[in-house]
Write a protein that binds this DNA or RNA. Sequence first.
DNA 1: CCATGTGAATATATTCACAGCC
DNA 2: GGCTGTGAATATATTCACATGG
Lengths: 261, 261
Amino acid sequence: MSQHRPAGASGSPGVVPALPDLPEATVARLPEYLRALHHLAESGHDTVSSEGLASAAGVNSAKLRKDLSHLGSYGTRGVGYDVALLVEQIEYVLGLTQRRAVALVGVGNLGHALAGYAGFGTRGFRIAALFDADPGRVGEQINGLTVRHIDELPACAAQESIAIGVIATPARAAQTVADQLVAAGVTSILNFAPCVLSVPEGVDVRKVDLAIELQILSFHEHRKASLTALPDTPGAGIAAIPNRLGGGGLGSSGTQEAVGS
Amino acid sequence: MSQHRPAGASGSPGVVPALPDLPEATVARLPEYLRALHHLAESGHDTVSSEGLASAAGVNSAKLRKDLSHLGSYGTRGVGYDVALLVEQIEYVLGLTQRRAVALVGVGNLGHALAGYAGFGTRGFRIAALFDADPGRVGEQINGLTVRHIDELPACAAQESIAIGVIATPARAAQTVADQLVAAGVTSILNFAPCVLSVPEGVDVRKVDLAIELQILSFHEHRKASLTALPDTPGAGIAAIPNRLGGGGLGSSGTQEAVGS
DNA sequence: CCATGTGAATATATTCACAGCC
DNA sequence: GGCTGTGAATATATTCACATGG
């Protein structure tokens, strides 16, 4: 499906750099652009301006243009971006031209929900296998898949070409599971367990910790409360309160910006 | 220099001391330090060096020291940090000295799992109420709580002093729910729906999108594949990298750094 | 000594502002 | 005219390296 190569133009000989090396911050935003573009496509738009796409994705237009410029320009000056073309480009860069097989380990509370989450299926992934270490859970059917024992992981990973694993076990089991995944050839891990994983070089780990997200919000609640509690105290001995506006702020993942202007 | 601020102990009641204004990147890491500190405390440590805490939290020690220095110094040169004191300080800064009430909206697939997630309870939060718009779900008991209709949100939020809301609805319902939460006085929202929310200034939104996390990993998979496939193998489909990559890789994915020794 | 805390140096990210092209 | 693409300017974050003080 990938006839398109975002290669540097001209006839520079030899190697085609399959991927431009993108800033991490840009990589983290491309999926959001992709989602917004699909939404726009469904509502009949076939082109969109940087302003329009930016607001659909919750960022400002300068950032969006800079991000897209790293992919090599696919917009038209005076017009905007071709939605279908941009979708194709971003999907190519994100490696979504193939549907990637994912192994999910841990079918407890959260694992069950993840196994049933439709969003994985519609956005480039296929949950290829479910695993658990608890024999009492092995054999259970979830969403058309049978839970297997973790010992079957190596064989299954090889057969299904699984390169991405999701850990949804309790924290105490997570490191062992990570080791097993790596041993089975997995090179990317999404970790929902509240702990740090140690993995060899070349393996990528992303972590999602639900309580941490709330704790970050708690900080902002605390700060807002402390600001409103001191309306305009005249020289109370505490240093002047920085006048920071707005909700949001930035974060490595997830904090939405307040669109000021 | 180090002005000691006993959290909530002294001073006239009602007066909230101003918070140091922390870099967002630091705020996002404090919860991880807190988790690591609790773990250390449980295993009997009562002091820890920046090196030790950093490795337990998956960051490097310089970053950790810089982060902690923003809270005002609570370490002892030549010794390290007092675990209990640091826990207390971070919990104070994050606003975790009170247990915050949270409303969860949407008890479908994911909402169910979140309602049952023990980590919220053990790390500073109390799920105070569950809501759904579907009358067929109202009345259901989950984890000791009864699902209420979303229309009861305003009354309930006021009564329970709910300032934080979690949205676990389908994307099409999320904006409406957000509006309802804001109208009910909620000023921080954790959004699991794959869409951008528009909220008034002063309301903080954090977003967790499970598919986006996988897509970011997919990018790194794609990049790793293109690097290993590059040298002189043109167009050779997908190779299932069997071996760990050798040297020179750019390590981390931005969330977790290479850990291990 | 030793490990913290911190200025200085570097790296990364965002925003501005406008040239260039449709 | 309008909008993209981009260098330059600014802001934020990370890392270095060492003075400081228990």
